[in-house]
Design a protein around this nucleic acid. Structure first.
Length: 285
DNA sequence: GCGACAG
DNA sequence: ATCTTGTCGC
């Protein structure tokens, strides 16, 4: 008996995850990762996809590169994309990875000296049903060190929002405090991190690729001005929701520039149907 | 049927 | 992911 097409696809995806899982490196592979102050680290990246309300097919893929330790924007790339895969918990990478990889490849081709030395991914890494979340997927396929930072807890391998979990959160006193997320096997799959003094709700950090968990947590804390690490926050901030309607209009009309909410957008055409945008100025806190 | 469900 | 207003506190 053959399974339904949907079941077949999920099985195929699971085996792909299992295959790529073997390539994940869970240790520090870079010199700067061993340094107490991350000496040698100059560029940190962040990636994200933004959607608009009624549309889960068209999105804006974002890549930003910030300086370290100043966390100033060195590079940003925004690209309207059309997704093919649906969102299914546990298979986020099959929906998002192709477009995040494209953004990294554009950067590598056009400004290779600005390639980030580590990429923050919003979503989980090893803290995943099969220990292979988006951050691992992007890490293995790009070869870059990646850190997974989820804003919400994925209940996996026995980790859940129990009383115990809640009290562990309550015990996090300052930014930088954390506790381990331990899977059923006893393995530490990630850590809940109080990312700043001001935010009581933690973020969930896990290894993506080519970095140890402790380094990932330490680095995440070092990149947080607010709850969400600055590279991810900046990449999410690059395409505020209201723009996207106009973004799409601009895209469809193939205009070279447009003005949105009083600000001018410059766009450059790469191909007949591929456009990138750059915002001259934006209001940012 | 009920709960869970990164983004 | 995205929606939306106010509210509380430093």
């Amino acid at each position: 008996m053959s399974a339904s097409p949907a079941e077949d696809l999920l099985q195929q995806w699971e085996s792909e995850q299992a295959r790529l899982r073997q390539q994940v490196l869970e240790d520090d592979t870079e010199d700067w990762q061993r340094s107490p102050d991350f000496s040698g680290l100059e560029r940190v990246g962040g990636v994200d996809l933004s959607f608009i309300k009624g549309d889960d097919v068209n999105a804006c893929a974002q890549l930003v590169v910030l300086s370290y330790p100043d966390l100033q924007v060195l590079y940003e790339d925004s690209q309207m994309v059309t997704l093919t895969a649906p969102y299914i918990a546990g298979f986020l990478a099959f929906r998002e990875t192709p477009f995040l990889l494209e953004a990294l490849q554009r950067l590598k081709k056009n400004q290779p000296t600005l390639l980030p030395q580590v990429v923050f991914v919003d979503g989980n890494g090893l803290f995943h049903y099969r220990e292979f979340g988006l951050a691992c997927h992007l890490g293995v396929l790009s070869g870059l060190p990646c850190v997974g930072v989820a804003k919400n807890l994925l209940q996996v391998q026995g980790v859940n929002k129990s009383e115990e979990h809640q009290s562990q959160i309550a015990a996090l006193q300052r930014g930088g405090d954390s506790f381990p997320l331990i899977g059923a096997s006893g393995k530490v799959l990630g850590k809940a991190l109080r990312s700043s003094d001001k935010s009581s709700k933690p973020v969930y950090v896990s290894v993506g690729h080519k970095i140890s968990l402790d380094t990932a947590v330490r680095l995440t804390h070092a990149c947080c001005r607010y709850r969400v690490p600055e590279p991810i926050r900046q990449s999410e901030h690059t395409a505020p929701s209201e723009w996207l309607d106009d973004f799409v209009g601009t895209f469809n009309d193939r205009l070279s520039t447009s003005t949105i909410k009083g600000q001018q957008i410059h766009s450059s055409v790469w191909k007949s149907d591929v456009t990138t945008f750059r915002l001259d100025e934006r209001a940012d806190g």
